[in-house]
Design a protein around this nucleic acid. Structure first.
Length: 312
DNA sequence: AAAGCGGGGCA
DNA sequence: TGCCCAGCTTT
């Protein structure tokens, strides 16, 4: 037993009622939430939404689903095309893994997205969160879903903290389980709605920077609010990864050049990138890492997106 | 448990 | 400029 474990004082029941009721009229109309969205569409959305805001995902999701409406379509798509459609969503390794997941679904699941969190978890790029989310949102399985929004909402509602801290700890996982609705109460309906409602509240009302507590359906039940909304501690404040000058920036610039230029001379890639600094060691390191990741391909003295045909 | 991995938008 | 955003993989 951990001495630092937060104890749930507020009864979860009224909070479940407040948030799920709120969700029914406040929810955004997102394409992957519609009745006619397939499990594959839900999986694609979750892969794209890993670390990328909804507003930037919507158009890329629509283009992806138009081209590859089923797993078998994405499984056959050239990597170059996958990465081009992915465009600047970021973390392009996610796109490769989504394609690999499609291939696994075809090879091992008859082309249909598996329905349980345990099976989903085995797919490339599918971790604890995504497995639970797809099982819940696509198949109405009452899995405990915990994303960055839900972590923050639970920290405030039940632990009285302004922010949940940078890493997902065992205490937070325990809290999420402790306040989760009874999965067997009504066939899992409440549990699934609770997941999406808590997530939506975190996205629209209980935001990280300036929460709109006056609009919160659970403000009167919120432990953090009742404690006077104490500010986050120094430890809870996340320190951002630097961006300028980072390998991620250089990798991103190389990928952008490959998407636009098709097949590019290796030398042009190393000294012709639109970046503020020219660090040849770093550029070489980043190019090698992209080749190693399978995000780029060497063709003689040229470099291209994997599968892109050379002009020779 | 911590580090690495994109990119855009807003305070 | 700093910070935030429907995480996963590797160590």
């Amino acid at each position: 037993m951990s001495a630092a474990a937060p104890h749930v004082i507020v009864s979860p029941g009224p909070v479940h009622a407040a948030l799920t009721s709120w969700y029914h009229h406040a929810a955004r109309d997102l394409p992957w939430r519609r009745r006619d969205c397939t499990p594959w569409g839900v999986l694609v959305s979750e892969a794209m939404l890993q670390q990328t805001p909804v507003s930037r995902v919507v158009p890329r999701w629509q283009e992806w689903m138009r081209r590859w409406p089923e797993p078998k379509d994405a499984a056959l798509a050239p990597v170059a095309e996958i990465l081009t459609v992915w465009d600047r969503l970021g973390y392009p390794r996610r796109a490769l893994r989504l394609r690999e997941a499609a291939q696994t679904i075809v090879d091992r699941h008859g082309g249909r997205v598996p329905e349980t969190a345990d099976e989903l978890r085995k797919l490339p790029g599918v971790g604890e969160y995504t497995a639970a989310a797809v099982a819940c949102f696509a198949f109405e399985e009452p899995e405990v879903v915990v994303d960055t929004n839900i972590r923050r909402v639970l920290a405030r509602l039940f632990a009285g903290q302004a922010l949940p801290g940078k890493t997902y700890t065992a205490d937070q996982r325990r809290l999420a389980r402790d306040v989760f609705p009874d999965p067997e109460a009504d066939g899992g309906q409440l549990a699934c709605t609770w997941n999406i409602a808590a997530m939506e509240l975190g996205a629209l009302v209980c935001t990280a920077r300036s929460p709109a507590c006056s609009e919160c359906p659970a403000a009167q039940l919120c432990t953090w609010r009742l404690a006077g909304s104490p500010p986050p501690t120094e430890e809870q404040r996340t320190r951002a990864q630097s961006w300028a000058g980072s390998d991620r920036q250089v990798r991103g610039a190389i990928m952008a050049a490959l998407r636009i230029g098709g097949v590019v001379e290796r030398s042009d890639l190393l000294d012709g990138l639109p970046l503020p600094t020219v660090d040849l060691v770093q550029r070489r390191r980043c190019l090698e890492s992209l080749l190693s990741d399978g995000l780029a391909e060497q063709q003689g003295e040229r470099v291209a997106l994997p599968g892109a045909h050379s002009r020779c």
